[in-house]
Design a protein around this nucleic acid. Structure first.
Lengths: 112, 112
DNA sequence: CAAACATATGAATATGTATTCAAGTGTGTA
DNA sequence: TACACACTTGAATACATATTCATATGTTTG
C-alpha cells in the first residue's frame, strides 16, 4: 500500500495518457509529417517554403499542418498572405533527439 | 559556407534518418503497442502476462511484439516455455517521458 | 512419445489514412 | 472592385495496418 500514484501495476505513465501519447507519436510516424515538423522546429516557416523545401505539394503540406496544429505540435501565425508555422514547444525536439539516440545505440549482435 | 554537417538547409537530424525515426514513432503510435512497450519498460515480462494485464488476446500481443522486436525496441529472451520481453534500451523510456512532458505543457489560450 | 502449455504465424477482414485533384476562402494590391 | 497569390478544405482513391480466428511451432513433463 505504499504506492499512491500508480494507476495499475506498472509504469509511471498513467493509462489515461496513453491515447494522447499514441496520437502524438503517430503524428511523427509519417515521414512527410516528420519532415514537416523538422522544418519548423527552430523558427517559423511558411507553408509554401516547407512545400518547396521538401518537394511536397502545398495541399499535402497544408493537410498535415492542420493535423499537427490540432495535435498542438505546431502553432500557426499569419503574416500577410503567408502563414508561418513553428513547433509548439521544446519537448518535440527532445523527443526526436532521444529517438535519434536510440537509433544510434549499439545493437547487440543478434542471431537474425 | 560554414556548415559542414547539415544535409540540406535545416535541422540537426539528417534526412537519411527520417524514415527510421518515422518507423519507430509509428511503432509507438498505436495504443495497444504503446501499452505493451510500457509493460516491458522496466523489467522482462512474459507474453501471457502482458496479454492478461492489458486484456488483449495473446495472438495480438505476439503480433505486436514481433513488430517491436523487428524495430529493435524490445528484446526477447526465452525462459523455459515462456518468452520474456524487455525494452531494448533507456532511450525508449526517455522518448515517452519527453512526450508526456509535452502533453502536460501549458497550452496558450487559443481561439479555437 | 504423447499431452499440455506458451508462443508464433498466416490468411481474412475491416478500418484507418496518406495523397491527389479540384474548388474554396482569405489577403494584399493594381 | 477585380485579380493574383497563399493557403485551406472536401471528396475520391489507393494503400497500409490492427485485429481476429484457426493453425502451427516449440518446450516441458508424464
Amino acid at each position: 500500500m505504499t504506492n499512491k500514484t500508480k494507476t495499475s501495476t506498472n509504469s509511471l505513465i498513467s493509462e489515461e495518457l496513453v491515447p494522447q501519447l499514441a496520437d502524438l507519436f503517430s503524428m511523427m510516424g509519417d515521414t512527410s509529417r516528420l519532415r514537416i515538423i523538422l522544418s519548423c522546429l527552430h523558427e517559423p516557416i511558411s507553408v509554401s517554403h516547407i512545400a518547396d523545401q521538401l518537394e511536397l505539394s502545398q495541399s499535402l503540406v497544408s493537410h498535415h499542418l492542420r493535423l499537427l496544429k490540432a495535435a498542438r505540435m505546431v502553432r500557426a501565425e499569419r503574416r500577410g498572405k503567408q502563414v508561418f508555422y513553428v513547433a509548439a514547444d521544446q519537448h518535440v525536439q527532445c523527443v526526436i533527439e532521444d529517438m535519434a539516440a536510440h537509433v544510434s545505440e549499439p545493437h547487440g549482435v543478434e542471431d537474425e
